[in-house]
Design a protein around this nucleic acid. Structure first.
Length: 479
RNA sequence: GGCGCUGUCGCCAAGUGGUAAGGCAAAGCUCUGCAAAAGCUUUAUUCAGCGGUUCAAAUCCGCUCAGCGCCUCCA
């Protein structure tokens, strides 16, 4: 039984879809005016796992993730660069798609763009005016927060307190200071669409209501996004959607925690952000994804070199074990019977994994179960007490988990080689030199000249190279 | 000022009433020419502090301390 933490009720609730077997899910994507940072990576990876796990659980999921491709920030950026706004939006949609592909995100069912839904947006605004929940004012159209009695039910505030803390000058065209724009009249030189209220463009918030209602219906199951979207974005979406339809908008609201830098929120406005592409210059994309899944999606996660390195070490441990298993299988060194402990771990893995994931997508716990299995596997390999049949099942079980988590999909030996080659580019010694020294040392060892062989080993260690003498020869890895 | 979140081993991190998962790091042992890797063992009588409820609390309640978030664009 899947339980989801619902922001609306501040509690974990049993998940019951509106239509048995089907799930409609909408996640706020990005406003495309710049490259994405790790915060975007976290949100998208988190909901990618939600999507994958729902499908794994047998649901037919319709997953919608939008691009907000018309907005003040896009216009500002276009003006700065002296290009049309759609040059900017298209450039960063492409960049977003590339980043998400590198992070192994499954493609959503639909990826609508705000500019493709302007007709629906205008219709929704007109519907709100007709319902008395919105009013035109001087080319703009505003939503009247006082007309929607449940306003702020998601963020659990009240209008009076909000105004007390207001830091924005009040626009005199608004009937209430908290009223927000559904439609913005175009200023000279700005991109526009024609509407009953004159030339203009959609306000922020309305596009998500229009697109989600069009693609998922007026009431759907899950709506997600970062914690910072609770207010005002999601609050306003609820107000617009429910004031128009008269129906509940969403059943389960999910919000992911922030990526922090030194315990502080990473954000554009603070200027303390790292882009996904910058990070992927230094770390493998699978390591970044594994790192993001090592904490629960609602907790804050601290981004640092140290933490990424720890994640890399952990992932290497898992892949090293899997690689050793592959070698064992290839060398036909398997036994006829398997150790009981390994049998038990293999058989219980999927159940324990699902139990963790059913508890509000607890990926950290799910991964811990995998480490449990790895320890039993290493032991069985060391003791040569694993049958080919069981190892085959183990591989299949890992593959099922990998399909949900989006990590562990690599061929183990290839992952390890990838990490090795990435690290070797930072070394002060070339691969050829290393290989030559390793050969010299092997010759010295064969001649039982351990003084020379140890000197070579120390020399390499000083450069960060560790040697592993195995039955089949000497291998090396980067520390 | 309003609303809300967090504080668990050196570091990361699960655990929301039944007596502290897992990873990294560290130490000892096995293996090894010696190492490394791997395995085994060890490392929180204790969960920011102080009170309270309970047969039983990291988990519930109250207060205090520390850190953070939203209230303005933001994943």
């Amino acid at each position: 039984m899947l339980r989801i933490f619902n922001t609306m009720t501040s509690a974990k609730e049993e998940f019951k879809p509106i239509t048995p077997g089907k799930v409609g899910m909408y996640v706020c994507g990005v406003t495309v005016y710049d490259n994405c940072h790790i915060g975007h990576a976290r949100a998208n990876v988190a909901f990618d796992v939600v999507y994958r796990y729902l499908r794994h659980s047998g649901y037919d999921v319709t997953y919608v993730r939008n691009y907000t491709d018309i907005d003040d920030k896009i216009i500002n950026r276009a003006n700065r660069d002296g290009v049309e706004f759609n040059v900017i939006s298209e450039r960063y949609i492409k960049a977003f798609d590339e980043d998400m592909a590198r992070l192994n995100l499954a493609l959503p069912t639909h990826q609508p763009k705000a500019t493709e839904y302007v007709d629906e947006i205008i219709a929704l605004v007109a519907r709100l005016i007709a319902a008395g929940a919105a009013y035109p004012a001087d080319g703009d159209v505003y939503f009247s927060v006082e007309k929607y009695e449940e306003y702020l039910k998601l963020s659990k505030r009240n209008l009076e307190d909000m105004q007390a803390g207001a830091r924005v000058d009040v626009d005199e065209r608004k009937q209430h200071p908290m009223d927000f724009a559904l439609w913005k009249g175009a200023k000279p030189g700005e991109p526009f669409w024609t509407s009953p209220w004159g030339n203009g463009r959609p306000g922020w918030h309305i596009e998500c209501s229009a697109m989600s209602m069009k693609l998922l219906g007026e009431t759907f199951d899950i709506h997600g996004g970062g914690k910072d979207l609770v207010f005002p974005h999601h609050e306003n979406e609820i107000a617009q959607s429910e004031a128009a339809s008269g129906k509940p908008f969403v059943h389960y609201w999910m919000h992911n925690g922030f990526v922090n830098i030194n315990s502080e929120k990473m954000s554009k406005s603070l200027g303390n952000f790292f882009t996904i592409r910058d990070i992927l210059d230094t770390y493998d994309s699978e390591v970044l994804r594994f790192f993001l899944l090592s904490a629960h999606y609602r907790s804050p996660i601290d981004f640092s070199d140290q933490n990424l390195s720890d994640a890399e070490a952990g992932l290497e441990r898992i892949y090293s074990s899997l690689a050793a298993m592959d070698e064992l299988l290839a060398s036909a060194g398997t036994a006829s019977n398997s150790a009981d402990e390994l049998v038990e771990k293999v058989e219980s893995l999927h159940g324990r994994f699902c139990e963790a994931m059913d508890d509000d997508f607890n990926t950290a716990l799910a991964i811990a179960h995998l480490f449990d299995l790895v320890r039993a596997l290493n032991k069985a390999i060391a003791e040569k007490s694993a049958s080919a049949e069981l190892l085959g099942r183990l591989k299949a079980e890992i593959a099922r988990l990998a399909e949900v988590l989006g990590v562990f999909n690599s061929v183990p030996a290839e992952f390890l080689a990838r990490i090795k080659s990435r690290k070797s580019s930072e070394l002060s010694i070339s691969t050829d030199e290393i290989e030559a020294l390793v050969e010299q040392r092997s010759a010295a060892r064969k001649a039982r000249d351990f003084k020379l062989s140890d000197a070579i080993r120390d020399q390499l260690l000083a450069k960060g190279i560790e040697l592993l003498d195995t039955a089949t020869g000497t291998e090396w890895k980067i520390k």
